[in-house]
Design a binder for these strands. Structure first.
Lengths: 218, 218
DNA sequence: CAACTATTCAATTAATCTATTGAATACAAT
DNA sequence: ATTGTATTCAATAGATTAATTGAATAGTTG
């Protein structure tokens, strides 16, 4: 029966996408790329893989339709091939968090210590920001900030937070955000700010989620 | 830096889910299970795999948190471990359909040939059914029919269609539906019915779409 | 208790995947 | 044209995966 054949072919194709997401390094690369366009050497540096190895993983992601590239000057830049890929990634993470006990354990041992740092939802943030009550703080590296950020947010990468503490107003609440729910940058920032006497909160989710929720972007 | 370690650990765990979905047979099994609880031998039969092989694939899906099982009597029944898994599956299919040219080609070559079997939209069907002009035919297996179907539809699984041809009225148009846009059951049914001289159409989309569109269900 | 059934486990082989290495390409800068 | 840089390609070895086979297990039935 040829329809059976068709169905199997189809599933085999779907499996290509699964296979692309079956390796931790590739998922990490994908997450970096989801934050904005990245060149191969950047990705190699961030992920700690060799350039050749990074390149190969990128090919696989590309052949599975998850990312695309374009060359500008000497460098090849990779970007996510669509918002549906971000949805897929989030679904995957969601399933892993809910159903894999190892993940639950990992998160609870690493993050609960820090998670008294109550997050605040995005809608509330917009209200408070409009009223001039909060300082929105983007703690990601400045390249990421430049390729898109929450409106009105100021950028102080975590590594430079200490230096710039003076430029922050203690009268305002501070809301810090970074790359996503498991990015520890914002956790660390809020911890440090509170140590110094600021009123600081962590934004629930990070910039990719903000963007894909259709919220305004600068 | 230990947070890097944590992140890598986390991605490695996420990759387990991807790995579970990196094989066509497993995806097929997952889809069958998503339609309702299934025993191992049922799944082996439908998928055409050996029982031992099926069992092993099921273990992998289970260890990735996608399915769960419970034993009743002699048999072990597997079921989807949550709606989030269905979301994940749909995201995966969605990405594959949009970004893999092989999938687009497969769908267009296999389905367009048959797609002269013009589909009819749901709203029109309801009108025609109310006027008693059409026979609505559910060609899914009877368990699926029993757990919910289009109002007034009669159930003849595709495998038994030949036998029950006599019970169908040639004076009425027949509209067949199954599980969804890529389910070939309805295609095959319409093809067979037309061969036998019936006026048959395919319902655009399947029962899951019908239900989630908020249309009435019996 | 013995025979049977449905499922899982264990061992094997062939195929595939990952990371590493070093060379090849493509292009920009000089 | 030559040099230098960013990326990709190709070949390799070790690890992992899929399917097959046959045996083991758990539980039901007679």
């Amino acid at each position: 029966m040829s329809s059976n054949n068709f169905k199997q072919e189809l599933f085999t194709q779907f499996a290509r996408v699964g296979k692309a997401m079956s390796n931790g390094n590739r998922l990490e690369l994908l997450e970096f790329i989801a934050q904005g366009e990245r060149s191969v050497d950047e990705l190699a540096k961030i992920s700690g893989l060799s350039v050749a190895n990074t390149s190969q993983h990128l090919q696989q992601l590309r052949l599975a339709g998850l990312i695309n590239c374009n060359k500008r000057g000497l460098k090849v830049f990779y970007h996510i091939s669509g918002d549906d890929v971000i949805d897929l990634f989030n679904s995957l993470r969601n399933v892993a968090e809910r159903h894999l006990s190892d993940v639950q354990q990992l998160i609870s041992t690493y993050l609960t210590v820090k998670d008294d740092l109550e997050p605040i939802p995005a809608t509330e943030l917009l209200d408070r920001a409009r009223d001039g009550l909060v300082t929105v703080l983007d703690v990601r590296p400045s390249e990421e900030y430049q390729s898109g950020h929450v409106p009105g947010a100021i950028n102080i990468p975590l590594s430079q937070l200490e230096k710039h503490l003076g430029s922050l107003d203690k009268a305002h609440d501070i809301v810090a955000y970074c790359r996503g729910p498991h990015c520890v940058l914002a956790f660390d920032a809020v911890e440090k700010l509170r140590d110094k006497g600021f009123t600081a909160h962590r934004l629930e989710d990070g910039f990719p989620e903000w963007k894909s929720a259709g919220l305004p972007v600068e």
